[in-house]
Design a protein around this nucleic acid. Structure first.
Ligand SMILES: [Mn+2]
Ligand SMILES: [Mn+2]
Ligand SMILES: [Zn+2]
Ligand SMILES: [Zn+2]
Lengths: 135, 135
DNA sequence: TTATTTTTTGCAACATTATTGCATTTAGAC
DNA sequence: GTCTAAATGCAATAATGTTGCAAAAAATAA
């Protein structure tokens, strides 16, 4: 699906920042940091606009962010199939790569009395195949 | 266990910053942010020293941090019983309270081929009992 | 005890990530 | 093409965290 289509589907204005972010993230096929996105965007770049665009795209559940250890944030497209379902994320300690594990639904945890949940985040840290074969 | 004892056990110097952080976190009985810790510390406060003290205490697995949505970080004592075991954390969307769910071990996830894991973080977001009874 | 070495501290500077206010521009509806 | 609500760009500000370095404190050696 193309950026313009996605924006139309959600009745969002087609602005260059929104289209640019989507374009880059779709092409990458994996979660990217703000800097990685910026590096792949042509022309001038405004951080405020990025954050506001992200907020909009997030509210429409088009992209989501993955926070690793505060100070590393990656942005990723929602897989249109699993979409709303909570899924786990993988983080490679060696190369900082983040991967959406769309096929791995998160476990439903039994909370203590009185607590109720509505979202669960799971981040699995380890080594990715690429880094493992680097010895 | 008292701060001084803990530091002695780990053969760490008893400095006022380390003792202060431990004192405050032990008294609170729940994870606190840097600001919440600072507010409960007497005398002058240096952020650099806080971060360096935290690093030391973390390396000795005395306290650990919980990152909620980057921009909210809470620091908590390690439960001496479950200690090294990965445990889930609860975050209240209403009051920002964080709770260590020491009794809830994290599930072992089956990763795709070639990936290996060595640590898993689970954050369950929802409403705490106090906030639920506030209608 | 005194001297030497190591660790910790406090401060300034800097980096990164993120938010707000406001004037200007633009996309899309008419 | 005109109009208007929405989005943008820029400056200012905030929160969180790190680094270098000289001074202070603690541990160790003599
Ligand atoms: Mn994902
Ligand atoms: Mn915990
Ligand atoms: Zn890797
Ligand atoms: Zn609450």
């Amino acid at each position: 699906m193309k950026p313009a289509e996605i924006l139309n589907t959600h009745k969002l204005k087609r602005t260059s920042c929104r289209e640019g972010i989507l374009e880059v993230v779709i092409n990458a096929g994996q979660p990217l940091s703000e800097n990685e996105i910026r590096e792949n965007l042509p022309g001038n770049y405004d951080r405020t606009t990025f954050y506001r665009s992200f907020k909009t795209l997030e509210e429409h559940q088009i992209i989501h962010k993955i926070v690793i250890d505060n100070q590393l944030v990656k942005y990723a497209l929602h897989n249109s199939i699993t979409h709303k379902q909570d899924h786990a994320h993988f983080y490679c300690n060696d190369c900082d790569m983040v991967k959406c594990l769309d096929d791995i639904p998160v476990q439903k945890y039994q909370l203590p009395d009185g607590f109720s949940d509505n979202e669960t985040e799971v981040i699995i840290k380890g080594t990715c195949p690429k880094c493992k074969n680097k010895d």
